[in-house]
Simulated scan of single mutants.
Amino acid sequence: MSAGMERHVLGLSGGKDSAALAVWMSQRHPELDIEYFFTDTGKELPEVYEYLGKLEGLLGKPIVRLNPDRDFDYWLRQYRHFLPSPKTRWCTRQLKIRPFEQWIEPSLAAGAKVTSHVAIRADEEWREGHVSTHPNLTIRLPFREAGIDRAGVTEILENAGVGLPAYYAWRSRSGCTFCFFQQKVEWANLLERHPEAFEEAKSYEKDALEHGSPFTWSQGEALGELARPERVHKIREEHARRVARARQRATLNPLGLKTGAFELDDIDSPSKACLVCHK
């Protein structure tokens, strides 16, 4: 690979923002031979794979699948059976970022310039993209540069005919089935829609607790407790009350979200979710 060669890459998470950016870049910059990629942890929602298939059809080119050289079970052992958590996000580091770095490293080593296009919106001033540690790797934030916000993202996907990923009907973020940033109601939804994935998450948690892990997937509550029917009922009641309060605030604040226009992510959602998974 010659030193003058350039690569443009764009990571897809299975979420709406990165999907919209892929569509937008393909429409606005057809002159760029963008390589779309998805880092597959092997623990993704089935809906994520379905949505990636729709995007491939729209983009007219394959989405490269990057697979970690070591799976979740390997890294769980390396981290002494401690579950990943908001404070210790080893899953993001080892299963998402590391495979990406390994994928582009040969190009950087050969002197090529690599531009990574990241889907941080204009209304996400607090977010930062992957910090480049290599002089030949440039991070671009096209949505922030163009002033595109969340409403703009939705408009791009609707106009393109792909719409939002199906899981947005019950979950606020993409990524692994057992993402620790899920709200409790989302764990309840996972139990209802993908019980086998919930049971797998519960088995990982049980193993971690037996090895002394201080973390559970859902803060302060083991999944076995959360899954009890009476507890699920209470979680859904509490969530319904939060939704009602959010709708009331939206009605009273015309400068804020319009009534009914918000998502699960707007209601008591954990902050600072993993950018590489959520986008």
Rank of each mutant, 00 (worst) to 15 (best):
A109S: 12
T177D: 15
S116H: 09
E128S: 13
C176A: 14
V131S: 13
P99S: 09
L108Y: 00
F100M: 03
K184F: 01
Q183I: 00
T154V: 13
R98F: 03
F72Q: 07
Y74M: 01
T177A: 15
D69N: 09
R171Q: 11
C179V: 03
G175S: 07
W75C: 07
A169F: 03
C91K: 02
L108N: 06
R121C: 03
D73T: 05
G147P: 02
Q102E: 13
W187R: 10
I139V: 04
V114C: 07
G147C: 06
L83P: 02
W170K: 10
Q182F: 05
Y79F: 13
S172F: 02
L108V: 01
E128A: 12
W170F: 13
D71E: 11
K184G: 12
T115A: 09
H81R: 13
L108D: 07
W75Y: 13
H117Y: 06
L164D: 08
R89A: 01
N159F: 03
Q183F: 01
F72A: 10
W187M: 07
E158G: 07
F181K: 08
H117N: 09
E125K: 12
W103N: 06
F72L: 09
R150F: 06
E125N: 04
A169N: 14
D123G: 06
I156M: 05
A146K: 10
W187P: 02
R89K: 13
D69R: 11
S172R: 13
F72H: 09
P84Q: 11
K113N: 14
V131P: 00
N136D: 05
I156W: 05
F82N: 15
W187Q: 12
L164S: 12
R89N: 08
S116L: 07
E145A: 14
R93K: 09
G175A: 05
A160Y: 05
R150M: 08
Y79R: 15
L157D: 09
T138G: 01
C176N: 14
Q102I: 01
R140T: 02
W103Q: 11
A110V: 01
A169R: 15
Y74G: 07
P106K: 11
H81L: 13
T177Q: 15
S174N: 11
A110K: 08
R150L: 11
A151R: 15
A188K: 08
S116D: 00
R70Y: 04
